[in-house]
Amino acid sequence: MTKRSSELTITLEGVDVEFGSGFPGAHLALRGVDLTLEVAGCLAVIGPTGAGKTTLLEVAAGLLAPTRGDVRLSMGDSVSDSPLRSSAGLVYQFPELQFFEDTVYEDVAFGPRRMGLDESEVSARVADALERSGLSPDAFEGRDLTTLSAGEKRRAAIAGILALERPFLLLDEPTAGLDPATRECVVDLLLSESEARGVALVSHDLELVDRVATRTVVMNEGSIAVDDETSRVLSDVAGLEALGLAPPVEYALLSLVRERAPAEARRVRRALFDARVADANT
C-alpha cells in the first residue's frame, strides 16, 4: 500500500472465462462481466450454485486470467504497475483444509515469510492477524493446528491471509458450516476489515450479506444480473426466490405485508428498522 491507496481499484471489463476452451463440454463460467472493486467498503456477490461467483473472485484476485476481456489494478486514473496478485488476498471456501504447517504461528507466518520480510516483522504481522481474527496470539500461536476447534481453524486460516496485509480481501463463503458464535466473530472481522481495505465476499447467507455489505452483486449463469445497494437488492424478494436464494426474514415479511396489508408497510418497516438501529447502539 503506497501513496494514495484510497484511489486503488480493481476493474474487470468485459470479462469472459471459459473452462475447457476448444474441447467438447467447454463451459463459459463468466460472460461479459464488468465490475469495479474499491479499496474500502464491502461488496457481496450472491447467486445460485454454478453462477460463477468463485470464478469472479479468482479473476479479481489475479489468480485466473480472463479468456477474453480485461482485468486491471488502477491508482486513480493510471494503471498501477504492481501486480494484481500482490494487491489482493483470497480466502477460499473451507480454507482450513489447506493448512500445511504444524502450529498456528508457522502457518500464519508462511505468507509473510515468502514475501521476504524479516522475522521481527513476520512475528508482528502474525500477532496482529491473529488478534484481528479474534484469536489471542498468546493463547494460539504455539497451538498444534490439529487441536483447534472447527471455528478456531477457520479463524486461523483467515489470519494467514490477513497477515499478507493486502489492500483487497476476497472471501469465498467465509461463514459456511460455522457455528453461530464463530459466525459472529467473522461478522465483526468483515465489518472492521472493510473500514481499512476493500472487502468482497461470496455468500449464500443473505442475513450475513445484509449485515456487512453496502453493495451487492447478483450473478446468474456467469453474468451480473444486478449491481446495487444491498438493501435494494434484498428488497426484491421475488427475484431472489426465483434464483433459489433466501431473503432475510425482515425483507420477506415486508414484501408479504405489502401484498396483504399495504397500509401497514410503513409501520412494519419502521419497526424492523428501528430495532436494528437500537441493536447497533447497544
Binding site: 442475513e207 432475510p248 426474514v249 425482515e250 415479511l253 409501520r267 412494519v268 419502521r270 419497526a271 424492523l272 428501528d274 430495532a275
Partner: peptide
C-alpha cells in the same frame, strides 16, 4: 430470526 422479528413487531 422470526422470533427476533416478532419482538420488534410487538414493540410496534
Amino acid at each position: 430470526a422470526t422470533m427476533t422479528v416478532a419482538e420488534s413487531l410487538r414493540g410496534a
